[in-house]
Write a protein that binds this DNA or RNA. Structure first.
Length: 721
DNA sequence: CTCGATGAGTTTTTT
DNA sequence: ACTCATCGAG
C-alpha cells in the first residue's frame, strides 16, 4: 500500500504522531483535532511502513460504537477488512479472552455475562439471603461499592474493615456476592476485566502468549481508563509491546465512575521512553466557539495545557438567551431551530444539550406542540427491555441451568401458580444443599414437602423446560429463539397487556428473532479450540452490546441528549440549555473543587460539539423537583469573554437599542477559582465561585474544616496561599 | 395475582 | 412534581 494515501490527508502534527518511531506514544488530542483519524492512520502506517502484521495489533475503545467506527475506518483506509486484528472494547476483549481460557480463569464453559440490572437483582437476593434488612443495606449502595472496588482491582480479601460497621457489611456482601456469581456461573462487567487481569497474573504462560503476539496496543479515550484498565494495559504491554494512547485531559468527564485522568500523566513514567504529541488544530468549530471554549477551560488548574486553534472562519458570536422560565427557554430554542430549518438547514444538524435527563421533558413538550420531530438519546436500549430480558432469561436457563438469576426471573412468568412460598422452599433447599435453584427444584418435587398443588405446578414447570430443552437442541439460533419465545408463553402473556405497550412488546420479541438471525450471519471471531455454542455467544453479545437506543434514525430529527452522551459527536447547531448555578454546574458538585472542574470540562465538551453556531441559555425560574427555584446564571457563562458573546433579547423593543450588556466582569475579587486562601477564623479553603463586583463582591470558599461558605470580600480579609 | 397506597429518591452512563 | 419499587388488602 502506498504510504501517501495514509499520510497525505494529515496535518503536520497528526503526521508526526502517526509516523512516530515505534515505541510508546501518547497523543494529546484536543476536541475535533482528528483523534480517531490519527489512531486509524497509525494502524495503517504500522501495517504498511513498518510491516506489522494485523495479527499483532490490538485496538481498544470504550464503547461498541467507537469500536465499530474504528473497524469501519480501518477497513476503508486499507481497502480490506483488518482480519486477525483485535478491535474492541475493554470488556469485549476481556470477554473473548475469558471464553478462550475459561478453565484457567475458573469459569464454567457456558458462563454468562450480567448487565447492571441483573447485578442489582443478584445483590438484592444476596443481601436478603444474608438475613440483612434490605432497607438498611440498599443493593444500590453495595453495587457501587463492589464495582468501585473491582475497578480498583480489589477483592474482598484485600479490604480491611477497620472496625467500621459499614465497611464490614459491604465487604461481607461483596464476599457473598462473589461466591453467588461463582456458584451460578455469571460474571458482571467489572469482573470480566478483573478476572482477565487475575488470569494473566496467575498464568504467566497465557500472558506471555499474548505478550508475544500483540506487539502494538492502541487505546482510544485514554483519559477515561480506570485503575484496572490501566493495569490491564500495562500487563498486556509488558516490557516489549508499543502502546499508542490517545486522549484529552480536558474531556475527562467520567471521574465519577472511576476514570482516572492521572493515567495520562502517569503514562510517561510507566511506559518507557514515551514520546508525546499534541494535536491542537481544530477542524470542527468556528474561531469564536473555540476561543470561548478555551477561555472556559482555562479556569481549570492542573491541566496538561492545550490551546485549540482553527484556520477556519471566526463565525458568528455565541448567542446567549436569558429566559424567564424553562418553557420560555424551550420556546426560544425551538424557534431558533425552526428558523434554521426555514433557511434550508436540517433538523438533525441541531442538537439540544442539557445537564440532566429531566430537562428533556419541557423541550419535548414544546417540540411536540410545534410538530417538530425529535429524538431523545438515552433511556432503555433493545436488550435492556423487560420483555427481551424475560425471553433471554428463558434462553439463559436453557443454556445454563445453574443461572439462578434467570431462574428467579421466569419461575412464575407467565404466572403459573408458583408463588413466593414455593419459591422460598426451593431457595431454602438450594441453600441447604449448596446447589442451584434448578437442581433444588427437582429435589423439592421428589421430596414432596410442599402442598400437592404447588408440587404439581413445579413439576409442570420442570417438564416444560425439559421439553423445550429437547425441542431446541437441533435448531439453529434464530429457530431456537423463536421456539422459546412461543413455547414459554411470553407472547400469550404480553398479548394480554392492553394498549400500545403490549403490542410493542410483541414486536420487540419478534425483533429478537431477527437479531438472532443477524447474529448467526455475522458471528464474532473466537479463539477457543472447543466448539462454541452459538446460543451462549448470542447471550453474551446481548449483555455486552445492549443494542441501539430507540429507532427513527431515518427521519430528520432534532437531537436531544445529555452533555455526557454528546461526547464524540458534532453538530452544526448546538443549544446548551439550563446554564444555571445548581443545575450546571450541578449543586451536588458545588462543594468540591475537583468536581467543579469536571463540570467545567463537561461544559467544554458541550461547547466544542458545535461546528457553526453555539447558543447558550439559562432560565431565571425553573420548576425543579416540584418546586419553583430561582437560579443565577452559571459561572461558565461569565467565564466566556464578552467579545465572543451576543445577548439575544426577544419581545422586540430592547434588542437593538442597547448594545449587548456586558456580563459581570471576569473577576473582580482578585482571586482565582481554585485558589487556596486563609481566613482568620475558618482556616484554609479553596475558592469555588464569586459574584458581584467591587465592594459588594462575594466569594464562595470551601473550607476544609467548616465546609462551604459565602463571604463578602470587604470583610473576609482573605489571604492568598 | 392484581390493584392501589405508601415512601424514597431524583447528575452524568458504558460495559 | 414525578417516577419507581415494594407491600398489604382484596
Amino acid at each position: 500500500m502506498d504510504v501517501s494515501t495514509i499520510l497525505d490527508p494529515l496535518n503536520d502534527a497528526q503526521r508526526q504522531a502517526v509516523c512516530a518511531a515505534s515505541g510508546n506514544v501518547l497523543v494529546l488530542a484536543g476536541a475535533g483535532s482528528g483523534k480517531t483519524r490519527v489512531l486509524v492512520h497509525r494502524i495503517a502506517w504500522l501495517m504498511s511502513a513498518e510491516n506489522v502484521s494485523p495479527y499483532g495489533i490490538v485496538a481498544v475503545t470504550f464503547t461498541n460504537k467507537a469500536a465499530a467506527e474504528m473497524r469501519g475506518r480501518i477497513e476503508r483506509l486499507l481497502g480490506i477488512p483488518p482480519s486477525g486484528m483485535w478491535v474492541g472494547t475493554f470488556h469485549g476483549i476481556a470477554h473473548r479472552l475469558l471464553r478462550a481460557h475459561y478453565k484457567e480463569a475458573g469459569l464454567s464453559q457456558n458462563f454468562q455475562v450480567m448487565d447492571s440490572e441483573d447485578q442489582l437483582r443478584a445483590l438484592r437476593r444476596v443481601i436478603r439471603d444474608m438475613g440483612l434488612d434490605d432497607a438498611k443495606w440498599p443493593a444500590r449502595e453495595a453495587q457501587h461499592f463492589i464495582n468501585a472496588r473491582k475497578d480498583e482491582g480489589l477483592r474482598p480479601q484485600h479490604l480491611e474493615h477497620q472496625h467500621d460497621p459499614f465497611l464490614k457489611h459491604m465487604i461481607a456482601i461483596y464476599t457473598q456476592y462473589d461466591s453467588y456469581c461463582q456458584r451460578t456461573g455469571v460474571v458482571d462487567f467489572a469482573e470480566l476485566l478483573l478476572r482477565n487481569h487475575e488470569l494473566w497474573l496467575q498464568h504467566p504462560e497465557i500472558l506471555q502468549h499474548y505478550q508475544r503476539r500483540f506487539k502494538h496496543l492502541l487505546i482510544d479515550e485514554f483519559q477515561d481508563t480506570n485503575a484496572l484498565q490501566y493495569a490491564w494495559v500495562r500487563l498486556l504491554a509488558g516490557k516489549t509491546a508499543a502502546v499508542f494512547a490517545v486522549g484529552d485531559d480536558d474531556q475527562s468527564i467520567y471521574g465519577w465512575r472511576g476514570a482516572r485522568v492521572e493515567n495520562i500523566l502517569q503514562f510517561n513514567q510507566d511506559f518507557a521512553q514515551a514520546s508525546s504529541f499534541r494535536l491542537e488544530q481544530n477542524y470542527r468549530s468556528t474561531g469564536n466557539i473555540l476561543n470561548a471554549a478555551n477561555a472556559v477551560i482555562a479556569n481549570n488548574s492542573g491541566r496538561l495545557g492545550k490551546t485549540l486553534w482553527t484556520a477556519g472562519k471566526t463565525g458568528e458570536p455565541i448567542r446567549l438567551y436569558s429566559a424567564f422560565n424553562e418553557q420560555d427557554e424551550a420556546q426560544f430554542v425551538v424557534d431558533r431551530i425552526a428558523e434554521w430549518v426555514e433557511q434550508g438547514g436540517t433538523r438533525q444538524e441541531c442538537a439540544v444539550l442539557y445537564r440532566s435527563n429531566a430537562q428533556s421533558r419541557v423541550l419535548e413538550e414544546i417540540l411536540i406542540r410545534h410538530g417538530m420531530p425529535y429524538r431523545v438519546y438515552g433511556g432503555l436500549r433493545f436488550f435492556e427491555r423487560q420483555e427481551i430480558k424475560d425471553a433471554l432469561a428463558y434462553l439463559r436457563l436453557l443454556s445454563h441451568p445453574d443461572d439462578d438469576a434467570s431462574f428467579e426471573r421466569i419461575i412464575n412468568l407467565p404466572p403459573r401458580g408458583i408463588g413466593t412460598r414455593s419459591v422460598d422452599a426451593v431457595r431454602e433447599l438450594a441453600r441447604g444443599g449448596g446447589i442451584s435453584l434448578w437442581r433444588a427444584l427437582h429435589h423439592s418435587i421428589e421430596h414432596q414437602q410442599l402442598a400437592a398443588r404447588a408440587v404439581e405446578s413445579l413439576k409442570q414447570f420442570a417438564n416444560h423446560m425439559a421439553r423445550m430443552h429437547a425441542a431446541i437442541k437441533a435448531l439453529s439460533l434464530h429457530e431456537q429463539i423463536e421456539q422459546v419465545i412461543h413455547d414459554s408463553g411470553l407472547i400469550a402473556h404480553y398479548e394480554k397487556e392492553k394498549g400500545e405497550r403490549g403490542r410493542t412488546r410483541i414486536e420487540n420479541l419478534q425483533e429478537l428473532i431477527s437479531a438472532g438471525r443477524a447474529f448467526s450471519e455475522a458471528p464474532p471471531p473466537t479463539d477457543s479450540d472447543q466448539p462454541v455454542d452459538p446460543l451462549a455467544m448470542f447471550l453474551s453479545h446481548a449483555a455486552l452490546e445492549a443494542g441501539e437506543r430507540q429507532g427513527d434514525e431515518w427521519e430528520d430529527c432534532v437531537q436531544l441528549m445529555t452533555l455526557h452522551s454528546a461526547k464524540g459527536l458534532e453538530f452544526k447547531q448546538v443549544f446548551l440549555c439550563g446554564l444555571e448555578e445548581g443545575l450546571f454546574p450541578h449543586k451536588l458538585s458545588a462543594s468540591d473543587a475537583s468536581k467543579l472542574e469536571e463540570e467545567r470540562r463537561l461544559c467544554y465538551v458541550g461547547m466544542t460539539r458545535a461546528m457553526e453556531c453555539l447558543t447558550l441559555s439559562h432560565a431565571e425560574k425553573r420548576r425543579l423537583y416540584g418546586e419553583e427555584t430561582f437560579a443565577r446564571p452559571s459561572r461558565f457563562i461569565r467565564e466566556i469573554p464578552v467579545e465572543f458573546l451576543q445577548e439575544v433579547r426577544l419581545r422586540g423593543s430592547v434588542s437593538l437599542a442597547l448594545p449587548s450588556q456586558p456580563l459581570p466582569a471576569q473577576n473582580e475579587t482578585g482571586l482565582r477559582l481554585g485558589q487556596r486562601v486563609l481566613h482568620a477564623k475558618f482556616g484554609e479553603g479553596v475558592v469555588l465561585n464569586y459574584e458581584g463586583q467591587g465592594r459588594h463582591a462575594r466569594v464562595q470558599v470551601n473550607f476544609s474544616r467548616e465546609g462551604c461558605k459565602w463571604l463578602v470580600m470587604e470583610y473576609a480579609n482573605l489571604k492568598q496561599l
